[in-house]
Structures are given as structure tokens and as C-alpha cells.
């Protein structure tokens, strides 16, 4: 009996430790990014970095301005949302409100497949198909542009936007639909007057999570956007994103050097952005769950 009690105590301790590990890891990520980025924050200054417009990390007079990188991410993400939001939400509404069972099942597996394809493979497809297409269609010197990366990124974030929107639509109680249809509304009227508004917070969360996914995506953009670290003015130019910068440069920096530290600061900014986005999405989702629970 004593051993039984002891086992229970040990197990409890172990289970609790594992349970709390998520918080520990998340905190550790923030702390490691911060401590490794500290040197650049010290020597260059966070304000200078965040507002600086030139990123010349390796020149004699090195400059660590994040703005070109942040804008690069914003451009690419903007294009991505332009692709993923209408298609993702539209398809979700169709699947939830109009599609038959068979079509729905097929679509579900297809979306799962899309989500499972590694980003490096999307990058490869972009290299083979989209880069030449963008170059000839828009008559550019190079097909490596924010547009190219953004389109591929948009396709990649469709599964996120679609499946979370569909969950939100699915959570709307059937009684609401029946109530509206009983008043003589068509299915479509019911959908845009009742169902979509009722699911709006969930759909908003879906867009946020799609945004988070796109901002944090690395490999495809690295392979497709050309990585010119200049202030972008249009989506037809080559850009360099925050993620692409870290991936491309970390391999060649002096460990613990200023450039190394600056890359960690880029990571910190990236982490903070996605953290806020995810938190917002999560809180919205939580509220929605509570609303339908009763």
C-alpha cells in the first residue's frame, strides 16, 4: 500500500511536469531569443533596428534596419491572404452549407493532403511553375517576386483558413438555420444573413491563423522571392522576408557575433508578431466556443 501511494505521488509529479512543459518551452523560446538578441539590442538599439530602412549586415558599416524585412513579410503575406481568404472561406461556406456528403468527404481528405505537403515541396513547385509564369505574364526581368512567394504561400495557407472557418460554420446550431428557413428565406439568404454572421468570430480567427501561418512560413518564400533586402515598393519586386533572412544568413554568421545577435532579434520580432496574432485568434475562438456551449 505504501508503494502504491508512492507510485501515485511519483506519477502525479511526472504527469504535472509534462503538463506544464508547454509553458516552460514557450517561455524558454522567448528567453533564448531575447538573451541571444541582447547584444544587437544593446549595440544597435531596438528602436533603431525596428525603424531602420537598410539591412546591410555584412558591410563594413553594418546596418541592421528591420523595415525592409518586415515590409517584405507584409507584402508577401498580403498577397497570400488575397489568395487564401476568399478561396478558403468561400470553399468552407460551400462545404458546410451546400455540399453533399460525398463531396465533403473527398474535400476533407484533399485539404488534409494539401496541409501535409512540406513547404519545401511547395517551394520547388513554385520554382518550376510559378517563377517562369510570373516572369512572362508580367514581363519582368525576374520571376522571383513578392507576388510569386505570396501566391504559393496563399495556396499553402488555404487548408488553415478553410478548416477553421468550416469548424466555425459547423458549430452554428442547426436550429438557427431552420428558424431562418422557416421564415421563408432561401438557403443562401440564411447563409449570409444568419449563419455567416453567427460564425463571424470563428472565421475571423481562421483568417488570423492563416495570417500567422503565412508570416511564419520560411522555405517556400526563401526559394521564391529572390531575397533582395531593399525597401519594396510593389509586389512585382524581389523582397526578403524576416523568415527568409534568418534562414539564409544564419548559416554564414559568426556565432555570438553582432549579425548573429541581430538575426535573433529578427526572430524575436517574428515571435512577438505571431504570438499576438495567435493569442488574438485563440481568445476569439474561446469566446465562440463558450457562446455555443449551452
Amino acid at each position: 500500500m505504501a508503494t502504491r501511494r508512492a507510485t501515485e505521488v511519483v506519477v502525479r509529479a511526472l504527469v504535472f511536469t509534462c503538463g506544464w512543459l508547454a509553458i516552460v518551452i514557450l517561455a524558454a523560446i522567448a528567453i533564448f531569443l531575447l538573451t541571444n538578441g541582447l547584444r544587437s539590442i544593446d549595440e544597435v538599439g531596438l528602436g533603431t533596428m525596428l525603424t531602420g530602412t537598410s539591412w546591410y549586415p555584412t558591410s563594413d558599416n553594418a546596418q541592421f534596419g528591420f523595415l525592409p524585412l518586415i515590409l517584405g513579410s507584409v507584402f508577401v503575406t498580403g498577397v497570400a491572404l488575397f489568395v487564401s481568404v476568399p478561396v478558403g472561406i468561400g470553399a468552407a461556406v460551400y462545404l458546410s452549407e451546400f455540399a453533399g456528403r460525398g463531396f465533403k468527404e473527398v474535400a476533407k481528405s484533399v485539404v488534409e493532403f494539401m496541409a501535409a505537403v512540406p513547404s519545401v515541396v511547395y517551394g520547388l513547385i513554385g520554382v518550376a511553375v510559378l517563377i517562369p509564369w510570373v516572369r512572362t505574364t508580367f514581363q519582368l526581368d525576374s520571376g522571383m517576386t513578392a507576388l510569386t512567394g505570396g501566391i504559393v504561400l496563399g495556396v499553402m495557407s488555404i487548408p488553415t483558413v478553410l478548416s477553421i472557418s468550416e469548424d466555425a460554420l459547423h458549430a452554428v446550431p442547426e436550429s438557427l438555420r431552420q428558424g431562418s428557413m422557416a421564415l421563408g428565406n432561401t438557403r443562401w439568404q440564411t447563409t449570409y444573413k444568419v449563419v455567416v454572421p453567427a460564425a463571424s468570430s470563428g472565421i475571423f480567427a481562421a483568417v488570423m491563423l492563416g495570417l500567422g501561418r503565412a508570416i511564419g512560413e520560411t522555405m517556400a518564400v526563401l526559394m521564391l522571392t529572390g531575397n533582395a533586402a531593399v525597401m519594396p515598393t510593389s509586389v512585382f519586386e524581389s523582397v526578403r522576408t524576416m523568415t527568409g533572412t534568418i534562414a539564409a544568413e544564419m548559416g554564414e554568421v559568426v556565432r555570438k557575433g553582432l549579425h548573429y545577435s541581430a538575426l535573433f532579434s529578427v526572430g524575436l520580432v517574428l515571435f512577438a508578431m505571431t504570438f499576438v496574432i495567435n493569442l488574438a485568434a485563440d481568445l476569439v475562438l474561446e469566446r465562440q466556443r463558450k457562446r455555443w456551449r449551452r
Binding site: I29, F264, L270, T274
Partner: peptide, 10 residues
Amino acid sequence: GVPSIVYGLF
């Protein structure tokens, strides 16, 4: 939701 490259840094 943490970007994979941030995991790489960590």
C-alpha cells in the same frame, strides 16, 4: 503557431 524558423533559432 510559432514559426518553424523560430524553433530553428531556439
